[in-house]
Design a binder for these strands. Structure first.
Length: 739
DNA sequence: AGCACGCCGACT
DNA sequence: GTCGGCGTGCTC
């Protein structure tokens, strides 16, 4: 043994590196700092020809890597470990659960700046007087050198001041540098704690809570300090946010932090205002629109404990917290909590895992809970918190089906709908029409030969857009509008309705009524959505036409009529979750109507008024629907009564994905685990998308354990399949969308 | 993912 | 004669 101390120092570092390889890499720790490195430290290491930042996941005595292959790590990024052991364990668990390369999982949890080796600590230049400067600075600097004298005065009677502070006080860097040359002042670098980037206002007070709210708050409060998954099921307008706010107030009193996860589109300045107005504490806000610098600042505030409330979208579930006290997942059913590419994690599910590891409660809130969460609440007796009433005695809206087969319909709008619109508009109210299809028309069709405009790169029709002609909604491809059929030269015509066409139709029917269309196309520019919503609030707009965008977050107190123009898209889908999503959308959009004292009316246009899902929803609301849907899932052995994983593959050559999946299927038989069924492989329903052919193989098991057992050995083999080299493949554990 | 190596085609 | 196409192989 060369070094007598080597027995005590673990010299092998197991390092996770941001690479798609499902492996970690061993390095030798240089003797200079081998004793000062621990799991969680970021280190610079040589990796192939590159120099990269990795995260130490383990320190060991020995490595199974041949001596000749081992390389020395270069250096630690900083003295402090980036993650503590518990958080690192959460990341490793997530990598393991989702079967994703641990290096990429850890990278996903780091702000870009930290991935590139930036230090967590903020350093600043500070200035102070030297001993000579203190004793004789003012005597030696001539009176006319006013700048320099001012600098000395500014540093007298204080230990030191930051350069930034001095500049703000009118001291020039130039004069400081001159004084430094003469030996009167000196500068040094110090770590600093910058103030939190977002401060609360604390101007509003809690309104009186109703009984249900108070019960919910009390029970969450009573659970602080221990792990419970609460499902806060509150109908729209029942005051869920007020429950969160009151629970958070107690969390803050305990000196702990609250993490609030919200859907992507819901994180608007207004939604944050509600929180900021209640609490006079530092906040950290995390969303995809932040710059690298802002993201790092928010991350740092959360990790240091400076930020007491952290509000963020999906990725915020991976923000370290110094003193976690509570996790809230608002609108927990929202699909944006599931990442749909790369590391396909569910932030809602990981929030629960995180709560368990921290030993703190997790509150899942929704007016339309996911069936997974409802089933969990049924299993965990007493974990359901219901808010069954609207605040301020507002009446729930009445839902009515409009049978499109019976009633006349023109351009997607039926006669009963038109009559109802007139009635509500005449009464001075606002009307909201929901259609989950942007553009003018979903098809451009030739009536004489049956030709339809297709995307070159996808198995899909092109959508007609009024301005930019023909667009593919799946790959973004754009083509010029045509008026003649390319095969038979007859006139082609747009068929079906999109929001643009509804807008056009309504403008013709109600020429004097101000109307706004709210979808991704009309609200492209920053601030446009906020401006339009403000106009709606001022009653300057009377008719609103829009997509999903309308159903999230914003409340329209003067809207008394909501029309769901086409409820049929989700009724006959191959995806077993389509009906759940449809019910959630209908209930969410219905919830926009009739706040306060005005009762709301909701019309649902459908060709299938007898569909069992719609009747359940109409007769018994979301609860009845959910109960029915859960029974169906149980009988069909679908989640939440079973667990799924999906192996997807895509390639530009048509046959490759299926070839790979067949090889994968054969491999799975060699790893067969009891209870795991394999379904497929099958081409995706839209086989070609953006020029790539897609196929998938579904794994089905009664619980997660056997699935996990199969996946762990199977994936190793998949990596060495020659068929896998020609395709891009990925594993999706707990897939949200089957196709 | 990067990055390099390697072996065949149209160009300053 | 070289620049560059992307197949193949490797990363402690």
């Amino acid at each position: 043994m060369q070094n007598p101390a080597a027995g005590a120092t673990r010299v092998i570092l197991v390092v996770a590196i941001d690479t798609p390889l499902r492996r970690v890499f061993d390095y030798r720790a240089p003797a200079a700092w081998a004793g000062e490195v621990q799991p969680g430290h970021r280190v610079w290491v040589p990796f192939g020809k590159r120099r990269v930042v990795g995260v130490v996941t383990e320190c060991r005595d020995r490595s199974s890597v041949p001596e000749g292959k081992l390389r020395f790590a270069f250096e630690r990024v900083e003295a402090e470990p980036t993650f503590d052991a518990g958080f690192l364990e959460l990341l490793r668990w997530s990598a393991d659960y989702y079967r994703h390369p641990v290096g990429e999982v850890i990278a996903a949890a780091l702000p870009a700046a930290l991935r590139q080796g930036a230090p967590i600590a903020v350093e600043e230049t500070r200035w102070r007087l030297t001993v000579i400067g203190k004793e004789q600075g003012l005597e030696k600097v001539p009176a006319r050198a006013r700048q320099m004298r001012a600098a000395i005065e500014a540093l007298t009677d204080v230990a030191d001041r930051s350069a930034e502070d001095l500049v703000a006080a009118g001291i020039s860097r130039e004069s400081l540098r001159k004084l430094e040359d003469r030996g009167y002042v000196e500068h040094f670098t110090a770590e600093t704690t910058p103030p939190a980037s977002n401060e609360g206002l604390g101007t509003s007070r809690s309104p009186a809570l109703n009984e249900a709210q108070q019960t919910a708050v009390d029970r969450i409060r009573g659970s602080l300090g221990s792990f419970v998954t609460w499902l806060l099921h509150g109908i729209t307008g029942s005051g869920k946010t007020e429950v969160y706010l009151n629970a958070i107030a107690t969390v803050l009193e305990r000196g702990e932090q609250a993490l609030v996860l919200v859907p992507e589109i819901a994180l608007t300045p207004q939604s944050i205002t509600r929180f900021r107005e209640r609490f006079d504490v530092p906040f950290a806000i995390m969303h995809s629109g932040l710059s690298d610098g802002e993201r790092l600042a928010a991350w740092r505030d959360a990790r240091s404990g400076t930020a007491r409330i952290v509000i963020g979208t999906r990725s915020a579930v991976f923000v370290p917290l110094a003193r976690p006290g509570l996790i809230v997942v608002d609108e927990e059913h929202d699909s944006s909590f599931k990442q749909q590419e790369g590391f396909r994690y569910s932030a809602r599910d990981l929030a629960i895992v995180r709560g368990q590891r921290h030993g703190i409660p997790v509150v899942l809130g929704s007016a339309t809970p996911s069936l997974e969460s409802l089933e969990r609440a049924q299993r965990q007796a007493g974990s359901l918190l219901s808010l069954p009433h609207r605040a301020a005695d507002a009446k729930p809206p009445t839902l009515t089906l409009v049978d499109l087969r019976k009633h006349g319909e023109s351009q997607g709008i039926s006669t009963p709908t038109l009559l109802a619109m007139r009635r509500h508009l005449d009464a001075g109210r606002q009307v909201l029409l929901f259609l989950n299809r942007r553009g003018y028309a979903p098809v451009l069709f030739c009536p004489s030969c049956g030709w339809a405009a297709r995307c070159q790169r996808c198995d899909a029709n092109l959508t007609v857009h009024r301005r930019s002609a023909l667009l593919c909604h799946h790959c973004g491809a754009e083509q010029d509008m045509i008026t003649r059929c390319p095969t038979c030269s007859s006139d082609v015509k747009p068929v079906g309705q999109g929001t643009e066409r509804i807008e056009e139709t309504l403008e013709a029917i109600f020429p004097k009524v101000p109307l706004a269309r709210i979808d991704r196309d009309s609200m492209r520019r920053k601030g446009e959505l906020e401006a339009t919503l403000a106009q709606v609030d001022r009653n300057e707009i009377r008719i609103l036409v829009g997509t999903q965008m309308l159903t999230k977050g914003h409340h329209f107190p003067n809207v008394t009529l909501v029309v769901v123009l086409n409820a049929d898209q989700g009724l006959f889908s191959t995806d077993f979750r389509a009906s759940e999503r449809l019910a959630q959308t209908i209930v969410q959009v219905a919830g926009r109507a009739g706040r306060a004292e005005q009762p709301g009316e909701v019309l649902i246009q459908t060709e299938y008024p007898d569909h069992p899902l719609l009747s359940l929803l109409l007769r018994g609301g979301y609860d009845a629907f959910a109960a029915g849907a859960l029974t169906e899932r149980q009988q069909a052995h679908w989640p939440p009564y079973s667990r799924l994983a999906l192996l997807r593959a895509e390639a530009s050559h048509r046959a490759e994905p299926l070839k790979f999946l067949q090889a994968a299927l054969a491999a799975a038989h060699r790893h067969a685990v009891k209870g795991v069924q394999l379904l497929g492989p099958a081409p995706a329903p839209m086989e070609r998308r953006a020029g790539r052919h897609r196929a998938q193989l579904l794994l089905h098991a009664p619980t997660h354990a056997p699935l996990q057992r199969l996946l762990s050995s199977w994936i190793l083999e998949l990596e060495s399949l020659p068929e896998g080299r020609k395709v891009r493949w990925s594993i999706d554990v707990d897939p949200a969308e089957l196709f």
